[in-house]
Design a protein around this nucleic acid. Sequence first.
RNA 1: GGCCCCAUCGUCUAGUGGCCUAGGACUCUGGCUUUUCACGCCAGCAACACGGGUUCAAAUCCCGUUGGGGUCACCA
Length: 518
Amino acid sequence: MTVRTRFAPSPTGYMHIGGMRTALFNWLYAKKHGGKFILRIDDTDQQRNVDDALAPILQAFRWLNLDWDEGPEVGGDYGPYFQSQRSDLYTAAADRLLAEGKAYRCFDTSEEVQADKEAARENGTPPAGMRRSLELSDAEIQQKLDNGDPWVMRFKVPQDRKIEIHDEIRGHVEWDAALMFDPNIMRSNGSPLYNFATVVDDAQLKITHVIRAEEHLSNTAIQVLLYEALGETVPTFAHIPFVMAPGTKKKISKRDVEKYRKSPAFKILFDLSNQVLPQIGLDEGALNPVMVEFYEQTGFLPAGLLNSLGRTGWSFDETTEFMSLDFLIENFSLGRVVKASAAFDPEKLMSYQAHWMNELSSDDRTERCTPFLQKAGLLPADPSEDDLAKVSKVVESLGDRIKVASDILTYGYFFKDNIEYDAKAFKKRVKKGNVPELLGEFRPVLAELSEWTLESIEAALQQFAESKEIGTGLLINALRIASTGSPAGPGVYDCLVIVGQETVLTRIDAAIEKATAG
RNA sequence: GGCCCCAUCGUCUAGUGGCCUAGGACUCUGGCUUUUCACGCCAGCAACACGGGUUCAAAUCCCGUUGGGGUCACCA
């Protein structure tokens, strides 16, 4: 038996981070067992623009390198892979259940059903009146049909039994069928409800392992009954805990982004968002950390996100933290999924991200940073070789200071004509004692350097400091602020070399002027 | 409320009856390194929800309590 797993997103216009984790576990399980991973689109409720609403979802999978064996764009033997195109399947299955007496037409109004359920709830009994449509004679039914009375199809729950499953993560779970209501499986307009459609689809797609969020656990009882009624093999279930929002006990949800915006647990992500999005021409509200696209657009590595997703609700052993996708494929198992729900942890994501960024060669990092400079207008769309060489130099000197690719924007001073001074640092390092004078005296030394290299500048500075009988730190710090405006960054000599002799001299002049002005 | 699921440091987790004085990671704190920042290194803070059993032995098994969550649609 080949393992077949699936993920069935609705085209909502974005890929949910929690859904991505569920998809990842499905994908991993299929890969690990040499099986197939299927993408099916649950678009029954969707109006138009399915393509537009689906695009970001497919893009998220592509970005993370999670390919699908069957589904949109790639097709497959069990298509179509859009629920909206599979209505025949649902109708046929429903008709069969009806013919076999396993389902019935329910003519009750929704008010009547509601009342039945409420009464049942109060009494703690199964809903008694609910099956009154079953009392109808064939003639009465025909009469109602002829009248055009609306009806829905209900599945007749076999009440004298228990439903038991062995969930790969929860273990043995059972329900008492006597307590269940007959579920609606087809709407009055002939379209299927989720619980029914998903069973028909999973059976027809030969899904062997249904790995999904635990919120579906209660749905499983009715689904098992449906599989049996349809004469299909019940798949193996694995209900994984859902992903909670950091700092909460609630499922992470797009509805709550405004709350997240103020939450300390989300701070690093929204700080990044606020800093980066405007610079790359995106509206601040356009993307948020609930969406996978957010991580792509702010310069995370697939490896970073994947490591984080793979480690929330799953572990390999007591010490392994850094896991590549290959490692995950090799070692993933449902048995090691944690039962309790886990909060997505932005801090930890950053630490994984930093790790994988450091694994990259300087050239790879440069390649990832360049587009951000372009989007921010700090580099032309068609950069010259000199431009690229400069980016490369900057990235190399920045080393592990770049955690996400968009961090390059923090060091925009290498690419701008006008720099902004960090006020505190300027006061502490430049506008202090005789520093402006020293800078003034050192300027001509720099101006006269015929060679502008790390070594020549360092030698000149050391000699100058010695002659003045001052520590090198004084000048070094002053030069950093004067030439970059910022207290953070690569070594000063790197900075000076990259900024360039001419610009350094101009900036020193500007700094001296600013320091002595007021 | 009924049904179902869950419960170890702030967070992610290890733990499947003795290797537990409960391990690792992130965060945080202190120190070292250092021309800034970052990295790195060292050290530290910090948890078995509670109550009963079972057992020579329980974080681990059982029962109960409490707490958290899910679900009860002509949504998915």
